[in-house]
Nucleic acid binder design. Structure first.
Lengths: 202, 202
DNA sequence: CGTCAACTTTACATGATGTAAAGAAAAGGA
DNA sequence: TCCTTTTCTTTACATCATGTAAAGTTGACG
């Protein structure tokens, strides 16, 4: 019985994973645009209906894909590294650096979720959850600054977090890189500088 | 013949305007979400098909609505007032002020166009045109700063414009007001302060 | 050999956009 | 008054993606 269950779940995982992997790659390639359920199915080598055996709808497939990406990318670890910094300023810089390197990898799926957010309740909730996590990261960096007494005067922790959170948002990244043409390197460098000028006592 | 043409175009304008007005109000009320062609038609008191007699498709109706809004709101005038400022810093502040008061009025239609942008070429082009106009406004403000020799060292006009343009973008406004809960007044006040800290020599 | 789960295949419902075409109604011109 | 043209209505239909439903196939396991 145990053996059978094991093999069963291995098999389920296999197809399921293939679907998730296909979704990921297609979303990455298409920058989150124009990826249909049938495309994902075809790429995974299964019928369109088989996808619905594993995921109830498109929104949940996208959400599951983000979770899968988090696992594979070890997102938490990468973003948590900044916690090791000594000073608040170092921590802020490390967080921006990690985020700047991470964001391009998840942009495809992020954009697809963002588009669903407007029409799908589930997608909105899932997206908000992820963004709240980012906000917490921003808040931690701001609090580290404050602890060093390096937070710019006239800024509350909340407002400073709001600002950092917004300039680090996916939409702002999209604007800086796609509309303004900033490279990943420039993005990281300039965001650090912007955050420093805005948030750190001079 | 002239008279007839005149009366004709007056009549066309009437229904046409009613459609544009309805589109505007619905988009404003629905914050750009879930507004269908049939909703607009119903609100304008015409059949859905009649809308297609005046606008070839949804994208063009949305675009025409923005143009209509610009006319009614006298957008250019309002945004151009900042040109009267004496110093670069005043000009920057005036531009942000005008923008901060203007954006909430066009957010509904802006969001609808933004959503179409991902799938519709026409919508993308129309949107990009409008945003390039905003960019020019930002660039003018930055150049005014530079003329006063008040542009922060290490910042080129281009990069400074990129930054201002991004923090003033519709997406950033959306984030500050909807996600962070900033009021219009706070938004204007804080954006001025952010722009000042980032762009102006200290 | 039979069972069960995973998967395929086919068919269909939905909901929005957009096309097509025939007919009604109103308004102007002669 | 009558004719013509424009505007709008009505009805019908094509399309496209999502999602539901159900019957049939396949392969592993006991």
């Amino acid at each position: 019985m145990y053996v059978r269950l094991y093999i069963m779940s291995r098999k389920i995982m296999d197809t399921r994973t293939r679907i998730l992997e296909s979704a990921w790659k297609l979303l990455e390639a298409g920058q989150g645009q124009g990826v249909r359920m049938s495309d994902i199915a075809k790429a995974a080598g299964v019928s369109r209906q088989a996808v619905y055996l594993h995921f109830p709808n498109r929104a949940e497939l996208l959400i599951a894909t983000t979770r899968y990406l988090d696992e594979v990318n070890k997102t938490d670890e990468r973003l948590a590294q900044s916690r090791g910094a000594r000073t608040g300023e170092e921590r802020l810089a490390a967080y921006i650096e990690a985020w700047g390197n991470y964001l391009p990898e998840i942009y495809g799926i992020a954009k697809a979720l963002l588009a669903m957010k407007d029409t799908d309740k589930e997608a909105e909730i899932a997206w908000n959850n992820r963004m709240q996590a980012v906000r917490h990261g921003c808040e931690a960096a701001v609090k580290a600054l404050k602890k060093d007494d390096m937070l710019a005067p006239g800024l509350s922790v909340t407002v400073a977090t709001d600002i950092l959170w917004t300039i680090m948002s996916v939409r702002s990244w999209e604007h800086f890189t796609m509309e303004c043409g900033w490279s990943k390197k420039k993005y990281i460098e300039r965001l650090k500088s912007m955050a420093h000028r805005m948030l750190v006592k001079s």
